[in-house]
Design a protein around this nucleic acid. Structure first.
Lengths: 197, 197
DNA sequence: GCTAACTTGTGAATCAATTCACAAGCCCAA
DNA sequence: TTGGGCTTGTGAATTGATTCACAAGTTAGC
């Protein structure tokens, strides 16, 4: 879905009005039937014989994915990864807005950081009660990840993007997405090792 | 697989000798049948009635995944993300060794960077001919990602970990893994939006 | 040696996802 | 207005993945 949206934006910029499932499939490396099934799951916004209206389809996808609104994002762990994320081009351009940055290290707390002042992670629950952040990005070391996640959960946040290389436990109503770069590298190692077989 | 290995290391440290598929399943959030199918695909290293030998299984997995050897990794794009990756805890501890760092910006080339000197990306092909890197980590802006990937491909590297938020085209014999953080965030947006349905 | 309690490895069954195939709808040209 | 060329939307068929279920093998206790 996200992927389709990316292509649609491309087409929008190039001024094209409509796009066929076939075209979308070619871009996304899939089949036209797949694309149509995916899209029809949310309703039928295509015109037979013509294709999909680029403008309409992208606005519908944005709606479905919740990208029509602003999300309040906090970063927990003001290390290098957190910093890299904050300036990641295109990361926070689609409605994701950083509202606070937390850390646990006394040397960091209070320091300025990319137009924010780093706060004490122990204040997270109190702050969250009034500021109601929607998403937490977790960029703390593996050792304190679960402990920090527990705090995030307690503060009422229901979506977490985790960069710590560990498997985390969270209640079912909290969505945790883990990006484990070590695993990605390992899968490349696997691909290189078992290439010709 | 990667995941299993992680748990096995945990068990190894705790001094346990054997582990059952059931235990691995509980850790990995899957079923024992699933674990056994996964493992049996590569052969049968378990002992009926007892389980799997932690030491043997982890060494077999390491072998299968190509983690028994050292991989030479280059980082292309000496920005924040590249820097964050280089110090990502546990990233380069399992046999992945950074051998060179490249950038295209004249201000960066020649500067020191985490025990390396940043090289000109235009020298990549020449360097690769003698240094034979195995894996390239691509952390350049979206706009120059495809161009840079083409260079990487030309230099003979067969595995790429891409952090640029674009879909890249590469020949079939080159494995490209893309980590797209914007998409991860968007999937959280989707989860939040369609939570109760 | 024998039994009881486990656990693997794997065919068979079930469940899910993908692909196929085509009727139905739309556009355009004549 | 009619026909030909496209493209969607969707049941049906196929393919793939997961789960079930159990024979076969192992250990430990007695």
């Amino acid at each position: 879905m996200s992927l389709y949206l990316r292509f649609l934006e491309d087409f929008e910029q190039r001024g094209l009005e409509t796009i066929s499932s076939d075209e979308l499939a070619r871009r996304g490396g899939t089949t036209s039937a797949q694309v149509r099934k995916d899209l029809s799951f949310f309703g039928s916004f295509g015109k037979r014989g013509l294709g999909y209206s680029v403008a309409e389809l992208s606005s519908r996808i944005r709606e479905i994915m919740g990208l029509a609104r602003e999300w309040r994002v906090i970063i927990v762990g003001a290390g290098k990864i957190g910093a890299a994320l904050a300036q990641y081009r295109g990361f926070f351009q689609r409605g994701f807005h950083i509202t606070a940055v937390y850390d646990s290290s006394p040397e960091k707390i209070g320091r300025a950081w990319d137009s924010h002042t780093i706060r004490d992670v122990r204040d997270l629950e109190r702050d969250a009660a009034s500021e109601l952040p929607d998403i937490a990005v977790l960029t703390v070391p593996a050792g304190s990840a679960q402990r920090t996640l527990d705090r995030i959960v307690k503060s009422g946040i229901k979506a977490v993007l985790n960069f710590a290389p560990v498997q985390l436990q969270a209640p079912a109503d909290v969505t945790v997405k883990t990006v484990n770069m070590a695993m990605e590298l390992e899968s490349l190692s696997f691909a290189l090792t078992n290439r010709d077989s």
